[in-house]
Nucleic acid binder design. Structure first.
Lengths: 127, 127
DNA sequence: ACTATAAGTATCATTGTATGATACTTAAAG
DNA sequence: CTTTAAGTATCATACAATGATACTTATAGT
């Protein structure tokens, strides 16, 4: 289930998008499976339907879902995307971001490793 | 040295802030050491001085630097911050973010580990 | 066939954030 | 004690995020 935080700095569209991405990565949503209609999810979250629609469209632009008028939005089949040098660099940048932050906040190496392993298990165990 | 990307989605203030944070975390800037004056850095980056000033103030709010009128901005002494449950959770969320993204982009577990170790070395080797 | 309903989409208004231009204040140097 | 160099405050503007509303397309029921 998705939960949004109106006080958070990250835009609502991104919050929704990211959480669905995590559900996809974790294998909680399988190819062909329908996402909730924009109006329903918007109602559940107390948000404008456009906000959800925009999240869906962002996901569609990434090839993760397929949306069609009148029919709904479903999870796309798993395209076999292969990471290139650029995406690898981007990942490194994002990781640096997280770890430098952790360092300044006083985390020890062991604690970081633990968090890393936990997260890794979430997305690579099954799926 | 700092480099900014005018086309990137992340605001200039954050780009500057994050890169200085990484320099601090990597031990490239030591306590007491001065940061460049806002006008100079702003000039180098081709950016308004307020943009740099705001980044500095954000860093000051985090206790990482100390700014004083007429004198300049210097790196703050290392406060011994201890991570609590909330910060640990936040770190987990950030890590999930990065790893779920990597998963969807087709990275394999081994590749992730490599990137993680490289980043870890950047911020925990020395310092 | 035809209508009703349910789905995504497009358009416009509004609000807030990011950035910049300019002026102000404080401290050090000559 | 004036000049210069530093951070700070104020205001203006452009763009992004969200919402209100209307539109289009597909399916279900009759």
């Amino acid at each position: 289930m998705i939960s949004i935080d109106l006080t958070a700095a990250t835009p609502l569209v991104e919050q929704i998008e990211q959480q669905i991405r995590q559900a996809l990565a974790a294998g909680e949503l399988l190819p062909g499976e329908p996402l909730p209609p924009v109006r329903q999810l918007a109602g559940d979250l107390g948000v404008n339907l456009n906000t959800v629609a925009r999240a869906y469209r962002a996901l569609e632009a990434q090839g993760l879902v397929v949306a069609q008028r009148g029919r709904g939005t479903v999870v796309a089949p798993r395209g076999s995307r292969k990471p290139n040098k650029a995406t690898s660099n981007a990942l490194g940048v994002a990781m640096d971001q997280v770890l430098s932050d952790a360092r300044l906040k006083g985390f020890r190496e062991a604690a970081i490793r633990q968090i890393f392993e936990a997260s890794l298990a979430r997305f690579w165990q099954r799926g």
